[in-house]
Amino acid sequence: MKVLVAVKRVIDYNVKVRVKPDNTGVDLANVKMAMNPFCEIAVEEAVRLKEKGIASEIVVVSIGPKASQEQIRTALALGADRGIHVETDEEVQSLEAAKLLKGVVEKEEPKMVIMGKQSIDTDNNQTGQMLAALMGWGQGTFASEVAVDGEKVNVTREVDGGLMTVGLKLPAVVTTDLRLNEPRYASLPNIMKAKKKPLESVAPADLGVEVAPRLSTLKVEAPKQREAGVKVEDVAELVDKLKNEAKVI
């Protein structure tokens, strides 16, 4: 079966984020960018499905500026077969991303779409569920295990209180949680080979979608900084402070 994976270009998770002095957003100039960590897990899962002989082809999609092609190339180096870049310099919010992905899905007709559960920049946790709704498909969100069985997939989900397994008819959307797998690194020869894999570029208009944000960001501020407190000498002092100073026990 064909598997589609959606990957997003975001700020690298190790970067210390700084809010711009004019409060219009965060400073992304000269900041290291990378594939969203949950999308790396999505790519890895697709590659494992291919290695098991379940997936026949992996198509990777990214929506964003020209530079998003770097993340598509990374996915190709990790084992995806083909890339589709939906190119736009506009801000793409989750609903628009889902509509653009729907356009790609209708063209490619994959049996499964694997996505991250959450982008670490917007922390939205929306796009996969929205795509599934737009397609009328089932969804296995926050997946820690994916077991394909013919025309069905069982997805074990990380939920409040523990784990829950749902059975979905294919095609379906799966969104990844941290425990689904541990992504591999791309080897140098594979990075070289990835440069020759096909990468097609399309515009949002080609997919019949107008990118029109519904939410406007009025301002972005730095959070209140917590002051470091004191170091205590020993456990006795700690207990004394908690009881008599902070009064929390």
Binding site: N125, T141, V159
Partner: peptide
Amino acid sequence: AGTNGKDTMPRVAALLDVAQVSD
């Protein structure tokens, strides 16, 4: 914004063709 809300509400938003404001 527990796991039920996170699972369900973006679908609601998409069905109504509106954005969701998370968390």
